[in-house]
Amino acid sequence: MQFGVFSVGDVTPDPLTHRAPTEHERIQAMVRIALKAEEVGLDVFATGEHHNPPFVPSSPTTLLGYIAARTRRLVLSTATTLVTTNDPVKIAEDYAMLQHLAEGRMDLMLGRGNTGPVYPWFGKDIRQGIDLALENYALLHRLWREDVVDWEGRFRTPLQSFTATPRPLDGIPPFVWHGSIRSREIAEQAAYYGDGFFANNIFWPKEHFQRLIRIYRLRFAHYGHGDPDQAVVGLGGQVFMRPNSQDAVREFRPYFDNAPVYGHGPSLEEFMAETPLTVGSPQQVIDRTLAFREYFGDYQRQLFLMDHAGLPLASVLEQLDILGEEVVPVLRAEFAAGRPDRVPDAPTHASLLARAAEEPDPT
């Protein structure tokens, strides 16, 4: 089981001081958070991809490449790589380069993003979003597995005898998670290729994501990749902790109430009741997170959103200390207890390389 954090990189004013960090400060804060994640024993740091204010991470591979040079163990990933508006050729080459620089300590999550105007900014039509996601990944999948590709599709110019460079490290393509909060087609896509499915269940009730994950697991088995419980699932979450739950609620409330995404809507209490947001003590976070297995089955990756809504960096680093020292060790032990041996771990470069070595040579 992997535990980590993901950042959307928002530049949001602190509602208590009314000061927003500069873009430079926010970018440097994301680096500090990644380094802290490794320091406290987390497994994964992931960044979003956005091309509009108030967000700063427009170039995930640049950020993750820099972090790779300053870490030794942390798996680096994306919380969204925009497969709809990025050229799949560029994705193939950028992330293969990152894979080499990180010595294999990376994977990526493909998604369509949450900003409609990004489509025309990059010359695409949002009404073709699903079709773009499906076709672009079909090409990306081939570019990492075939040395020479001929291609013709609907959404980009044809390729003739094209080789993406560099080739994947050790001939092993980066592992791909397909992220979705609403689309059955993306769950189907993940199942078809035998890739991971990441349900970023931070905004909607669990019943919605239970349906998506169930579809993915059943279709994963349908395509012959294993039994439903062997499918590779990741989940999102949001937490804010203090030793006393009342203190956590009191401190976090102004940030929740003024957050650009969910502020001025449902109350904090309503949001906690309907979504995985947990504001309280470390034990409450442990109990709530352990319940995810009851809803979704055994899964492989749990990422928490912690640095958003204007929270000052000092508070986020304190949260990471609590997460690493008091929460994750308990979650690791509890999730491992009773986990069937047949349920796989999250794929890593090392495990994928070992699996490839065991497969018979097709020649």
Rank of each mutant, 00 (worst) to 15 (best):
R250S: 09
V233P: 01
E251N: 12
Q230M: 08
F220W: 02
R219F: 02
P243R: 06
G237N: 15
G236Q: 14
Y223H: 04
D229K: 10
L235E: 08
A231C: 04
A248D: 06
R250V: 02
A221Q: 14
I215F: 01
R214E: 06
Y223P: 02
R217G: 09
H225I: 09
V239T: 14
P243N: 08
R214H: 12
G234R: 07
R217S: 11
F240Q: 10
Q238H: 04
R242H: 13
L218A: 12
S245I: 02
A248W: 03
L235W: 07
R214F: 00
I213D: 00
D227V: 12
D227S: 15
V233K: 01
V232S: 11
I215H: 04
Q230L: 05
P228N: 03
A221E: 13
V249R: 15
I213S: 07
G226L: 01
G226P: 02
Y216M: 06
I213R: 10
H222D: 12
V233D: 03
R242Y: 06
L235P: 07
R219P: 02
H222P: 02
Y223F: 11
I213C: 07
G224F: 01
D247K: 11
I215G: 00
F240L: 11
L235R: 02
V232Q: 07
Q238P: 01
I213N: 04
R219G: 05
Q238D: 00
V239Q: 10
V233H: 03
R217P: 06
G237Q: 11
P243E: 14
F240K: 13
D227F: 11
N244Y: 03
D227C: 07
I213A: 05
Q230V: 05
G236N: 11
Y223M: 01
N244P: 00
Q246S: 14
M241I: 03
M241A: 09
A221Y: 03
G236V: 15
R214G: 08
H225M: 07
V249A: 09
